[in-house]
């Protein structure tokens, strides 16, 4: 067994959240630069230029890219030959708390959704999805999820007879309804299959995948490309003010499902698609 100190996990989580809130990934920067070449209207060009400039300022001054520094979401792959010396869950939440305190990040979490809605004041608890895998390392992919785009996300349980056309229709309908609200250009995370909650988790995971990567299965890769084309034909455009770049990418993840269903979850992420990964 390999022993990992809880302190090391806390430190890694803290560092990641400060960094990912201030430094956008190269995949997004490259896609925005490409969008700049494709867009023709002065407004669309100007929006993209301002987003690029915004991200440059954030990086240079190490301030948050967006004021909505989101809820902290972590996908953890926990090696079965690892023992954490201390409390794993506390370490993650402590890392989030310190990052949001010391990194000048907004605290956006309320303690209960309906009644008090009192701010927890430290942006915890984090949302943690843990999977036990074989090996002696812990892999963490972390992201901060803003709710302008989270609120535009939807899930639907389709009949198997709806087929791929049903999946396409639903994804396009969700993006069309979201319109300007989720800060386009967006990254569309689609989770297909599994159970109700698994499809939602896959959709979130899809938004945490580099937009330079495609699904390994050729058929799903084609579906990603087709949906991206169709979405960009909608004309919603940067900031919803019209243009050719409504989405930067469609990322699909899938899982086996039941004979009676095709669960489809669409998790929309804004252009501030902030995530990083680490192996401890």
């Amino acid at each position: 067994m390999r022993v990992i100190k809880a302190q090391d996990i806390k430190d890694a989580v803290k560092k990641m959240f400060i960094s990912l809130n201030c430094n956008i990934g190269d995949d997004i920067t490259n896609a925005l630069n490409n969008a700049l070449k494709i867009e023709q209207s002065a407004t669309a060009k100007s929006v993209i230029e301002q987003l690029l400039e915004n991200n440059r300022i954030a990086k240079k001054e190490q301030i948050a890219i967006c004021q909505d520094t989101g809820m902290a979401v972590l996908f953890v792959e926990y090696g079965d030959k690892v023992v954490v010396d201390g409390d794993f869950s506390d370490a993650i939440n402590q890392g989030v708390k310190e990052a949001y305190d010391e990194g000048f990040l907004r605290k956006s979490v309320v303690c209960d959704p309906v009644f008090d809605r009192k701010n927890t004041s430290d942006n915890t608890p984090a949302v943690v999805h843990t999977k036990i895998v074989s090996g002696d390392v812990i892999r963490i992919t972390a992201g901060c999820k803003g709710f302008g785009s989270e609120n535009m996300s939807k899930i639907k349980m389709l009949s198997p007879s709806a087929g791929v056309e049903g999946v396409k229709d639903f994804v396009l309908e969700v993006v069309r309804q979201a319109g300007p609200n989720p800060c386009p250009p967006i990254v569309v995370g689609v989770g297909i299959g599994g159970t109700f909650e698994q499809s939602a988790q896959l959709a979130k995971k899809a938004t945490f995948r580099s937009i330079d990567d495609s699904n390994a299965d050729e058929r799903y890769k084609k579906l990603e490309e087709e949906l991206l084309l169709k979405i960009n034909e909608m004309g919603i455009g940067p900031a919803g003010l019209g243009g050719k770049t409504t989405a930067l990418s469609v990322n699909i993840e899938y899982a086996p499902t039941h004979i009676a269903s095709i669960p489809v979850a669409v998790n929309i992420c804004c252009h501030a698609c902030r995530h990083q990964s680490i192996e401890i």
């Binding site: 987003l51 915004n54 967006c66 302008g148 800060c183 900031a239 804004c270």
Partner: peptide, 13 residues
């Protein structure tokens, strides 16, 4: 008016 969503660092200037 609409300001550009997600341009928070720039707007703060």
């Amino acid at each position: 008016f609409a300001a550009i969503g997600g341009a928070a660092a720039l707007i703060s200037k």
